[in-house]
């Protein structure tokens, strides 16, 4: 009798498992379809189109041109200019961003009072939309704006125009400042979270052993937040490579495009203004490969850098 009872139950469990497997599949189905249509297909399409001469809104059939789009880009001065503009912007932004956010996180955590206030203050520009941020700074960089007033005050000069929006290097610096200003607080918060997760006992042990604050930071905090530091570096680097809004609004506001013609802006203009979809696709593929190599680095880092306390 006991067996007769057990038997149907076993089958029941198995059908339950099967039923659950089907439901699990149903629940993930929308995501599979979504990413197939809106991520994988477009990426494959970009690769494919990069081998064709194709024009936006043109009735002409796309013509296969092999690697010609890539060869064209390699010889094109404006493409190298945008690679240069992107590289200057990305390195010029990400190095100070990582250094400052790291140091200010450490400084904030030494404070007993106003910790929360400082974190919120530093974070606040990240709340603004990037177009708003660019619009504010466009006025600050005006010849009569705050930036010139500040530099004149700093160098004790009078009425010198530092040509923030017309001089090539100053314009690059201007876009870097906007981006740095907007995101430095965001990364500071990440570092604060990383540092706060180090157990207090480790710091206490170091203090008992006679370490001062500087030694504690250098020999305890810094090595222990290495994974955070590396991830922040890669992530901010990728973000910088994808910058668009600041440069777009500055150009719309009358700044010369050449020094800040970053690759995303260049893709946009090639596709929409020049209608060269094939060429824009080749640029997209190159951007993808650059960012992908950084993402790969990020995965490698997060896999190897495990710290247990």
């Amino acid at each position: 009798m006991g067996q007769a009872h057990l038997f149907p139950k076993v089958i029941d469990l198995r059908t339950l498992e099967r039923k659950k497997a089907i439901w699990g599949f149903i629940f993930t189905m929308p995501a599979i379809i979504f990413f197939a249509i809106f991520s994988f297909y477009p990426m494959a399409n970009a690769f494919w189109t990069s081998f064709f001469r194709k024009e936006l809104l043109s009735l002409k059939a796309p013509r296969f041109v092999g690697l010609n789009n890539y060869l064209y880009l390699l010889r094109s001065e404006s493409f190298w200019n945008s690679i240069k503009a992107t590289a200057i912007f990305a390195f010029g932004t990400f190095v100070p961003m990582v250094l400052f956010s790291l140091s200010f996180a450490a400084l904030i955590l030494t404070r007993k009072r106003f910790q929360k206030f400082l974190q919120m203050a530093y974070y606040s520009p990240a709340v603004l939309s990037s177009v708003v941020a660019a619009a504010i700074w466009l006025l600050i960089f005006d010849p009569r704006g705050l930036s010139n007033q500040f530099l004149n005050f700093l160098f004790n000069t009078k009425g010198i125009d530092y040509r923030w929006l017309s001089n090539e290097n100053m314009l690059r610096l201007a876009t870097i400042i906007v981006y740095f200003w907007k995101y430095v607080g965001y990364f500071t918060i990440i570092f604060v979270a990383g540092m706060a997760s180090i157990p207090k006992s480790i710091h206490e042990a170091a203090t008992i052993d006679g370490a001062n604050r500087w030694q504690d930071f250098w020999h305890i905090t810094l090595p222990l937040i290495r994974p955070t530091t590396l991830l922040v570096s890669v992530m901010s680097m990728i973000q910088c490579l994808r910058t668009f809004s600041t440069q777009y609004l500055f150009v719309q506001g009358g700044a010369p495009i050449k020094p800040i013609d970053v690759i995303t802006l260049s893709i946009y203009n090639t596709a929409i203004r020049d209608r060269q979809i094939g060429r824009a696709s080749a640029m997209s593929v190159i951007l993808f490969l650059i960012i992908m190599s950084f993402s790969y680095l990020q995965i490698r880092i997060s896999k190897t850098e495990n710290i247990t306390y």
Partner: peptide, 17 residues
């Protein structure tokens, strides 16, 4: 793996889709 695909790299095909 789709995290590795930056939006800026697929915006043109997406626009066409």
């Amino acid at each position: 793996s789709t995290m590795m695909i930056p939006f800026e790299a697929i915006m043109i095909p997406l626009y066409l889709i």
